[in-house]
């Protein structure tokens, strides 16, 4: 399967999971009366995180813009998701450079995954960018720092849940044997 087709299918699939399932499940920790605010984990940044290593930054920015805007259209929040997504699309390469042992050009034709990055760098990569995305998004959405504890709690809970979902996705959809063969070759 060509890399373009694969990514388009992944984009649609992740978007559908996000919009049709996750947006409907508003999670809530603890119950009344010191209840915790409801929150939604956003896993669609995973699509940006799983683009091939060599994607040029300009292309990544445009893809991030389109991806963010499509989520925005569903959520009636024109621009907010797009803003956060473009931000992580821009900083992805810096995070990758910092975490990868080899130069990024050595990974031609591969996408970031557990098998070629290792568990710990991959989790750091995912959680750093997802926390960045959630922090930006929730700050823009709330647009006031008067209730900063609430904002921080929301960011923390939401991104922790999102990272869990992302790891579940990665465990489900990584072809372990296939990638091992790729590594030997």
């Amino acid at each position: 399967m060509s890399i373009y087709l694969k990514n388009i299918i992944r984009f649609v699939f992740i978007l559908l999971i996000q919009v049709l399932i996750l947006n409907k499940i508003t999670l809530q920790w603890w119950s009344q009366p010191t209840g915790f605010p409801v929150f939604i984990p956003y896993i669609y940044p995973l699509f940006i995180l799983l683009l091939p290593f060599e994607t040029p930054v300009a292309a990544m920015l445009l893809i991030g813009f389109v991806c963010g805007l499509s989520v925005d259209a569903f959520m009636n929040t024109a621009g907010m998701h797009a803003f956060a997504t473009i931000l992580i699309a821009y900083f992805r390469i810096n995070v990758l450079n910092a975490l990868l042992p080899k130069n990024i050009s050595d990974y031609s034709g591969q996408t970031p995954s557990v098998t070629n990055m290792g568990w710990i760098p991959f989790v750091i990569y995912v959680s750093f960018l997802i926390v960045m995305h959630h922090a930006t998004f929730f700050t823009i959405e709330l647009w006031s720092l008067s209730n900063i504890g609430y904002l921080l709690l929301k960011i923390l809970a939401s991104s922790a849940t999102a990272v869990l979902f992302v790891l579940a996705y990665v465990l489900l959809f990584t072809n372990q044997r296939g990638s091992e063969r790729q590594r030997i070759v």
């Binding site: 930054v57 920015l61 445009l62 991030g64 813009f65 963010g68 925005d72 009636n76 929040t77 024109a78 621009g79 907010m80 797009a82 803003f83 473009i86 931000l87 821009y90 823009i140």
Partner: peptide
């Protein structure tokens, strides 16, 4: 990057 972010801010402002 900056151009796209500005577009987003304009969109946010309009809504």
């Amino acid at each position: 990057f900056l151009l796209l972010e500005v577009i987003c801010i304009v969109l946010i402002g309009r809504t």
